[in-house]
Amino acid sequence: MIDAAGYDRFLAEARTAVAAGVELDTVLIQLRRRGFSQVDSVRAVRALTGAPLAEAKETVHLSPAWGDVRDRNERFHQDLAEAAALEDDGPGPPVSGSTPS
């Protein structure tokens, strides 16, 4: 993640660029080149567009700036969902006050 001063400085530049008609994808590419993380990029999209969190996450996820990690992220989320489903099928935690058998 980028430091707060760097984030604020770039965000001011990005606001000017977006107001001048620069596409958001171009701004996201610049964010990544400057060392911003995906989380920083989501924060920036929200700040620049007023988009809700889910929309900002999708914008970053589908952007060309982060395309090289998209497949890895999708596999991670799929694996996480599968692991959670397996946990849901398990016996679950013991009930308070009971003793395991």
Rank of each mutant, 00 (worst) to 15 (best):
I2Q: 00
I2P: 00
A4V: 14
G6P: 02
G6D: 10
G6E: 07
Y7T: 05
R9C: 02
L11D: 02
A12T: 13
E13Y: 02
E13S: 03
A14M: 03
A14K: 04
V18D: 00
A19H: 03
A20F: 02
A20G: 04
G21F: 01
G21P: 00
E23R: 09
L24C: 01
L24R: 02
V27E: 04
V27F: 02
Q30V: 02
Q30R: 10
L31F: 09
R32S: 04
R32E: 10
G35M: 12
G35T: 13
F36G: 13
F36Q: 09
Q38N: 01
D40V: 06
D40T: 06
S41C: 00
V42M: 07
R43V: 04
A44Y: 02
A44M: 06
V45S: 01
R46Q: 15
R46Y: 06
L48T: 08
T49V: 08
T49S: 12
A51H: 11
A51F: 12
P52T: 09
P52R: 15
P52E: 15
E58T: 13
V60F: 08
H61I: 05
L62M: 10
S63L: 08
P64G: 15
A65D: 05
W66G: 03
G67T: 05
G67P: 00
G67M: 07
D71E: 15
R72C: 04
R72H: 12
R72K: 15
F76R: 15
D79M: 12
D79T: 11
D79K: 13
D79Q: 14
A81I: 05
A83S: 05
A85F: 03
L86Y: 05
E87C: 03
D89P: 00
P94V: 11
P94F: 10
P94C: 05
V95I: 14
V95E: 12
V95D: 06
G97I: 10
T99F: 07
T99G: 02
P100N: 11
P100S: 10
